[in-house]
C-alpha cells in the first residue's frame, strides 16, 4: 500500500497536466473496476459494482493534480520566469525542479548572500525576483528545450524520515488517490463511483464538471490537509497533528460538511478503533465545495491526511494516519449505501 503511494507521489501532475498520473491510475484500476472512462473535462471516472445496489449514488473523490509552476517567459539570459499554482514564494528559492514533459533538471535561483545589499538581507523572497535556471546560456539555447506554458514540478525524492514519517512531494493529493485505488481493488458492499479530479489546486475546478455529470447523492472527498503542528505553535493553531489519525473536518474555508456524515464518520472510527481528529481551524478548501454546490447538490464528507508543508516540495506525513484514512474510508463504504435518503 505504501509503495503505491510512493509511486504516485513520484509522478508529475501539475494542475492542467495530470495525464501521467491519470494514465497510471487507469492502468492500476482497470482490472478491478466495471467501467473506467475520462469524462469530457478529463477527470478519470470509475464505477465498481458492490454486493448491493443502493438507492443513492455514492461517489469517492480525490484530486490527481498537484501544486507546481508554469513557465511564462524565457529571458535573454536563458533563465525562465514562472507563475505558481498554489505555492508560497518563501519555499521556492534554491528548490530543484523538473521542467516540461522532457523533465529537464532545473533550479530556482537565489542570489548569493554575499551580493545581497545590506538593506535587502533578511527579506522574504518575492515572486518577481524568482526564476528557474536550466543551465541555458542564452534564450536561444533555452528555447530548444522549453516553451512558454510548460509545467514545472518539484524534483523531490520520497524519503522515510523515520519508521512512520514520509517526506515526499504531491502527498496532496496522491494519498487520496491511493485511498480510492485501494477501495476499487477491494470487494465493495455497495455499487460505488470514483472520480480522480483535475485542477483542484486551481480552485476545485475539475470537481465542478464531475459533480454535474455524476450527480452524486453522497460524496466523500479524500484529501490532504494542512498540519501546523510545528514545535512552538500554540495548540489552537495546529489545525491537525501528525500521528493523531485521519482528519474529518466539520467545516473548512469552502464547505460546511454534512453534520450527519461527520457524526457517522466519528462514530464508525470510534467503533472500529480507527484514530481520527477534526480540524481545529476553519481554513482551506477541497473539491467538496464544488460537489456540494454543483450537480443537484449533495451531502459531502471529507476524510483527510494531515500533512505538514503541504504545498511545497517536501510534504511530511505520518503513514499511520494514511492507514487510518484508508480504513475509515473502507468502513464508510460498507455503510453509506444503507443510509436513509433524507
Amino acid at each position: 500500500m505504501i509503495n503505491l503511494l510512493l509511486k504516485l507521489c513520484s509522478l508529475d501532475g501539475v494542475s492542467g497536466c495530470e495525464k501521467n498520473v491519470l494514465s497510471f491510475i487507469s492502468e492500476e484500476i482497470m482490472p478491478f473496476a466495471d467501467s473506467v472512462y475520462y469524462d469530457r473535462a478529463g477527470n478519470l471516472v470509475a464505477f465498481k459494482r458492490g454486493k448491493r445496489t443502493p438507492n443513492k449514488r455514492i461517489v469517492f473523490a480525490a484530486h490527481a493534480d498537484e501544486v507546481g509552476l508554469v513557465i511564462k517567459s524565457i529571458e535573454e539570459d536563458g533563465t525562465l520566469l514562472f507563475d505558481d499554482i498554489g505555492i508560497l514564494a518563501s519555499s521556492l528559492p534554491t528548490r530543484r525542479v523538473f521542467v516540461g514533459d522532457k523533465r529537464l533538471h532545473g533550479v530556482i535561483g537565489s542570489k548569493p548572500i554575499h551580493l545581497v545589499p545590506r538593506a535587502e538581507r533578511g527579506k522574504k523572497a518575492k515572486y518577481e525576483d524568482l526564476y528557474i535556471d536550466i543551465g541555458a546560456l542564452s534564450k536561444s539555447e533555452a528555447e530548444q528545450y522549453v516553451s512558454v506554458g510548460d509545467s514545472v514540478s518539484f524534483d523531490s525524492e520520497c524519503v522515510m524520515l523515520s519508521e512512520n514519517i514520509l517526506k515526499a512531494k504531491a502527498v496532496d493529493d496522491r494519498a487520496g488517490c491511493t485511498v480510492l485505488i485501494n477501495l476499487i481493488k477491494s470487494e465493495l458492499e455497495y455499487d460505488t463511483y470514483f472520480v480522480f479530479t483535475r485542477r483542484e489546486e486551481l480552485g476545485t475546478l475539475g470537481a465542478i464538471s464531475a459533480a454535474n455529470s455524476l450527480k452524486p447523492d453522497i460524496c466523500i472527498v479524500c484529501e490532504s490537509t494542512t498540519a501546523s503542528d510545528i514545535c512552538g505553535t500554540p495548540d489552537m493553531r495546529k489545525v491537525v497533528k501528525l500521528g493523531f489519525g485521519a482528519a474529518v473536518p466539520f467545516m473548512d474555508g469552502g464547505t460546511l460538511y454534512s453534520r450527519e456524515l461527520y457524526a457517522l464518520a466519528g462514530r464508525i472510527a470510534e467503533e472500529k478503533g480507527i484514530k481520527w481528529q477534526t480540524k481545529t481551524m476553519v481554513a482551506g478548501g477541497t473539491d467538496a465545495r464544488s460537489f456540494q454546490r454543483e450537480g443537484h447538490g449533495c451531502r459531502v464528507l471529507g476524510v483527510a491526511l494531515p500533512t505538514r508543508y503541504i504545498h511545497s516540495s517536501a510534504c511530511v506525513c505520518d503513514i499511520r494516519d494514511f492507514y487510518a484514512q484508508n480504513e475509515l474510508c473502507k468502513e464508510l463504504s460498507m455503510v453509506l449505501g444503507g443510509l436513509n435518503n433524507d
Binding site: 508560497l88 534554491t94 527579506k123 523531490s156 524519503v159 517526506k167 505538514r308 508543508y309 511545497s312 517536501a314
Partner: peptide
C-alpha cells in the same frame, strides 16, 4: 531565504534526514 522546506542531513550517531519546517 533558502531555509523553508530545504532538506538536510544531520550527522549524529547515524546520518538522518530532516526538512526545514515552515515557520509558524
Amino acid at each position: 531565504r533558502i531555509l523553508t522546506t530545504a532538506e538536510v542531513e544531520i550527522f549524529g550517531k547515524e546520518k538522518i534526514r530532516g526538512v526545514f519546517a515552515s515557520v509558524p
